[in-house]
Nucleic acid binder design. Structure first.
Lengths: 164, 164
DNA sequence: TGCATAAGTGAGAATGATTCTCAGTTGCCT
DNA sequence: AGGCAACTGAGAATCATTCTCACTTATGCA
């Protein structure tokens, strides 16, 4: 059951940069995930924060393996899953059959517009405004869940003339 | 590149019924798919029309196999893929890891609200109104593609108290 | 009609992201 | 300190979907 606030407006939040070069924050695993703290989960959280846009589990795995070469892919999948269910990460669609995730600190309910060229993300409004929900209810429907995935190209990728 | 018309309103279009009992239309394969006509593709199209709501490829396969027990699953996947790219079918999300498809004759651009209990479908408005698109453009973004999947429960399933 | 050919078919193998299993390991609570 | 549940790594398993390949068959043209 999502929040149903209308949020109009699309604003760029995160220009992409290579995640391996910096670690801007050091989030404690307790900050995003319930249960025990482990160095692996902390590394995965750090990796997620280091990405400035949408990323796949594979990309996150590569990033984390630079700090811990022996970390298993199942561990990263498990950590991502925990972070998603705890709201630290959001699923924002897919790229070439790989699920895309995003660290978004904006608590206002909204969706994301992902640049298919570089992963840069913009905010997008939620389609489920009060009007839509009322009309669904008038027909006897109760909405329980929704996914909105929007893809496009950012200014930089348009300039570079990236395909797709 | 989708149409961007705003379409407000949610209306029930298709109460679900068992697809095996009737074949309300007999669409010619030429009507939905380019290329050669084959009895298999015609059967798949008939099966798709027989469903009054969202269905998975598996369900469609079972339905079609009542007419042609030897039809291969790859054939149905290929036919569904052709129908989707020709606009005869639409992907409307997933159920238990199986993609959901829908035959919708409404040409107005909109999305669908799928009952997770029975597959009944309602129309839902598109989130990408002019305002959202303009604001994306103002940030340099060009939207190329979007997916909106909404799930809920219809009046009947709510009465029956179906879970999820 | 008869033919050429490309598109469609069926069977089964391949793919590949994700999940599961299982035997350790290790935080954390008492 | 001890107990135990949660976490980990390795690799197997899952399973929807796609691919391959040999065969069949619409369809357009001569």
């Amino acid at each position: 059951m999502h929040a149903t606030r209308v949020c109009r407006g699309v604003c760029v939040v995160k220009p992409m940069s290579h995640p391996t070069s910096q670690r801007p924050e050091s989030p404690d695993s307790a900050a995003y995930s319930p249960g025990r703290r482990s160095p692996q989960r902390a590394l995965v959280a750090q990796g997620a924060v280091a990405f400035d846009g949408a990323f796949t589990v594979d990309e996150l795995l590569s990033c984390v393996r630079e700090s811990d070469a022996k970390i298993g892919s199942a561990t990263v999948y498990r950590a991502v899953s925990a972070m998603v269910s705890h709201g630290f990460l959001e699923a924002v669609g897919e790229r070439d059959g790989h699920a895309l995730y995003l660290r978004c600190t904006d608590n206002e309910h909204h969706h994301h517009l992902v640049c298919t060229g570089c992963g840069t993300v913009a905010h997008a409004p939620c389609p489920l405004d009060d009007h839509a929900i009322e009309q669904a209810a008038a027909q006897g429907f109760v909405i329980t869940r929704h996914e909105v995935n929007i893809y496009g190209l950012c200014a930089q990728c348009l300039r570079r003339g990236d395909a797709q």
